[in-house]
Amino acid sequence: MDKPALDNRYQIPVISITFEDEIPPQIKNMVQQYHGEWNTTFAQFFSNMKIEKIKFIGSTDTTVMIGLLNNLL
């Protein structure tokens, strides 16, 4: 029988993205303004920033994580 997600060790998939350059300080105001919810403003803000590395945390299913990442970018 399948276990509920809350019983699993990795219940919430998370990605860690490291950018080549430092993230500008105005991100703090954006996060507060939009309550940290991803939207087109965030997408545009990050669109010209170069990614140095992507680390998958909290899930061993990389196909799910890649799908989530594709939706973000």
Rank of each mutant, 00 (worst) to 15 (best):
M1R: 03
D2Y: 12
K3G: 09
K3I: 14
P4V: 02
P4K: 09
A5S: 13
A5C: 05
A5L: 11
D7C: 01
D7R: 12
N8H: 12
N8M: 15
N8G: 08
R9Q: 14
R9P: 11
Y10C: 03
Y10S: 14
Q11K: 13
I12M: 13
I12P: 03
P13D: 11
V14C: 09
V14W: 06
V14T: 13
I15A: 10
S16L: 07
T18Y: 05
T18R: 08
F19C: 03
F19V: 00
D21P: 05
D21Q: 06
E22L: 00
E22A: 05
E22D: 01
I23M: 04
I23G: 00
P24L: 06
P24W: 00
P25Q: 02
P25K: 01
P25I: 00
Q26Y: 12
Q26W: 07
Q26T: 08
I27L: 14
I27T: 06
I27F: 08
K28S: 05
K28Q: 08
N29S: 15
N29F: 13
V31W: 04
V31G: 05
V31N: 07
V31L: 04
Q32A: 11
Q32D: 08
Q32I: 03
Q32M: 10
Y34Q: 12
Y34E: 11
H35G: 07
H35K: 14
H35W: 10
E37S: 08
E37V: 15
E37I: 14
W38E: 13
W38S: 03
T40M: 10
T40H: 09
T41Y: 10
T41E: 14
F42L: 08
F42N: 03
A43V: 15
A43L: 14
F45W: 03
F45M: 00
N48E: 07
N48L: 02
M49C: 03
K50T: 02
K50S: 09
I51T: 08
E52I: 10
E52Q: 14
E52N: 11
K53R: 11
F56Y: 09
I57A: 07
S59A: 12
S59T: 14
S59M: 06
T60F: 13
I66D: 12
I66E: 15
I66C: 05
L69R: 01
L69H: 05
N70F: 08
N71G: 10
L72E: 06
L72M: 01
L73M: 02
L73D: 00
